[in-house]
Write a protein that binds this DNA or RNA. Sequence first.
DNA 1: AACCAGTTGCGAACGATTTGCAAGTACGTC
DNA 2: GACGTACTTGCAAATCGTTCGCAACTGGTT
Lengths: 144, 144
Amino acid sequence: MSNPAERAEKLTDALRESGIRLTRQRRLLLDIVSRSDDHPDAVELHRRATDQMPGISLSTVYRTLSALEEHGVVQRHQFQNDTARFEPADGAHHDHMIDLDSGEVVEFHSDQIERLQSELAAEAGYEIVAHRMELYVRKIDKEG
Amino acid sequence: MSNPAERAEKLTDALRESGIRLTRQRRLLLDIVSRSDDHPDAVELHRRATDQMPGISLSTVYRTLSALEEHGVVQRHQFQNDTARFEPADGAHHDHMIDLDSGEVVEFHSDQIERLQSELAAEAGYEIVAHRMELYVRKIDKEG
DNA sequence: AACCAGTTGCGAACGATTTGCAAGTACGTC
DNA sequence: GACGTACTTGCAAATCGTTCGCAACTGGTT
């Protein structure tokens, strides 16, 4: 865990080490993604990037996000009936609850569930390579 | 639980009651889906349907699957980086393990996990409307 | 300052799925 | 059993998020 500034810096360092070329576009997007905590999609990130770099293209945003994902500094999530959303990948693993009314995404984690998942996989003769768990939820006692 | 024939019949009855018009195409697809236990996608279902009804169109397959889904007799799953896959919806709720090597889909269920999910949602002030849990797995001690 | 492989912006391509429309059909009514 | 009409179909075109080809550009190394 770290604040957005540290976070962006750490990620930049990680990238520099990995040999990826650091263009203005990549620096900008890295900065924007690492400061975001709302799981934006590519179009939203493009919108935010455009404020600071008017000519940046959507293709570049997509390509950069893929590159950042490959380098492990960004994570991509494909929620139900929705565009791909992105978040910085520096924190601990977690899953998501998606508020069906507001679209808001809440992160959560349960060691207990993960343990059970591994046990179930093992029983079936498998080991887990990756998993995905999403809860599509609605506020209890919602007032309009 | 039921064998494929009973299963298809039950589903047909359910549909008749719900007022949906039973065309040849729908009957055929209903039959094919309810006999399938391998989570086929729309194109595969279209391929299978074509054997018995050469002119059936892919649009009809898509439209029919949506209709059957709306009527609760078919379930759609969108696994990672893949086309939508379908299965009959007459059994009990379950989740999926996807074998990354073979593409095979294994069904599983855990009351314990579901209980934990509900608790976690409740703690955050939410109730679960739907959820999705997928384990992307690989065989343990796989021999080539 | 020069080099050049990696990157960008643009527009076109992609692939799964949906849609508009004219022709066809299920099924309640006579 | 034929009729009428709203619902369905097949076809082709549209959609939409995302990827790709390509010529122009640029990090970062020499």
